[in-house]
């Protein structure tokens, strides 16, 4: 399936580097993985939410990338191709019946840069994030992924369809039903209903 628009405006890698990656050249692979892993990590985090699975899924995606590189034909940008691998891996993860459902409160390490919210505000924010992903987890994996990619991450329907190997019509329908289910659940959730209150101005 053709990707009708580029997923990002990423600069393409030069052909020699890609060829070296196909041969399994460690330095070439490292260069590509270091350049693309923050993007892939962000995508996975958007799809599954905060939690300990992020590192596992990132690692699985990078390993699958390395293993699949000899078959990479260059029809899509490396970033698009890696996004497709990541989406597949996340989809498999979401399908597992006994996957961890607990959302870890603490991710490893670094504090977000920029503004420093009050402790109460930070706790509320964490709880809201947890509730949001809790409700997302109640939606079927395909609908959830289509919604997260299109509505939360902002990919056009055609790109979401290409990433998920689905038709545009099916993707539109999944987004529609996921949106309906999620808004329905969010309105009944006191923690998320707060989101409807106007934001405080600084």
């Amino acid at each position: 399936m053709q990707v009708t628009q580029p997923i990002t405006r990423a600069e393409p890698f030069d052909a020699a580097l890609i060829q070296a990656c196909r041969r399994g050249d460690r330095q070439a692979l490292e260069r590509v993985l270091r350049a693309e892993s923050p993007y892939v990590e962000r995508l996975i985090a958007r799809l599954i939410g905060p939690g300990a699975d992020l590192e596992d899924l990132l690692q699985q995606t990078l390993i699958a990338t390395v293993e699949s590189f000899p078959r990479y034909r260059g029809e899509a940008a490396v970033r698009t191709w890696m996004a497709r691998i990541a989406v597949n891996i996340v989809r498999q993860h979401l399908r597992r019946p006994h996957r961890r459902r607990v959302v870890a409160l603490e991710l490893v390490g670094e504090e977000p840069q920029g503004h420093s919210p009050s402790p109460d505000g930070a706790v509320d924010h964490k709880q809201q994030v947890e509730r949001l992903f809790h409700h997302l987890s109640a939606i079927g994996p395909r609908k959830r992924l289509a919604f997260a990619l299109h509505v939360l991450e902002g990919y056009p329907i055609e790109e979401v369809a290409a990433l998920m190997g689905a038709t545009s019509a099916a993707t539109k329908s999944r987004v529609f039903w996921a949106r309906r289910a999620l808004l329905g659940r969010a309105r009944k959730d006191p923690m998320l209903r707060d989101l409807l209150e106007p934001e405080e101005t600084p």
Binding site: G49, E110, P112, L152, L183
Partner: peptide
């Protein structure tokens, strides 16, 4: 309003520390 706040809420504001991301890259290599 709800969808917009959800977008912001789900925006991954924390990233894996460099050493953790490095660990994933090393495993792949």
């Amino acid at each position: 309003a709800l969808l917009e706040r959800m977008r912001r809420l789900s925006d991954p504001e924390r990233h894996l520390p460099e050493r953790v991301r490095g660990r994933a890259i090393d495993a792949a290599l």
